[in-house]
């Protein structure tokens, strides 16, 4: 039986980075509460013996065939680029890429 794990602020800060989401610090508590509420609900699952159970997999009636290796040209390319927010000629344009970005973001609305 594993010990109950609790999500904390430190991990939440990491998660904000992983998910590229900013959150005002005053709302940390609410998110942590909700995560931990889900985790506490899950604690009960440990009473089940799932040692012989595989992770969920679909029952299939008839599996579809895999895709044949034939190239198709997409007609919508130019229109798509026209709509793209960061088009630059034939490319997409992104700002400076820095290896580690510690930009701290407050929750913007």
């Amino acid at each position: 039986m594993i010990k109950k794990m609790e999500m904390d602020e430190e991990r939440l800060r990491e998660v904000l980075g992983f998910s590229c989401i900013g959150l005002p610090e005053k709302e940390y508590a609410e998110v942590l509460d909700r995560v931990n509420a889900v985790l506490r609900m899950c604690d009960d699952m440990q009473e089940l013996d799932s040692s012989n159970v595989s992770p969920f997999e679909w029952d299939v009636m008839k599996a579809p065939a895999r895709r044949q290796d034939r190239a198709v040209v997409w007609e919508g390319r130019d229109r798509f680029l026209d709509q793209a927010p960061v088009r630059d000629g034939d490319f997409f344009h992104v700002p400076r890429i820095i290896a580690r970005d510690d930009v701290e973001m407050e929750g913007e609305e």
């Binding site: 590229c20 793209a84 700002p95 820095i98 973001m105």
Partner: peptide, 22 residues
């Protein structure tokens, strides 16, 4: 915020991501 949907400028790639998503 790159290929479709809401885009916000940022000084770096990650800042652009975060501001667009936020």
């Amino acid at each position: 915020g790159m290929r479709y949907g809401h885009h916000a400028d940022g000084r770096s790639l990650v800042e652009m991501y975060k501001r667009s998503r936020n």
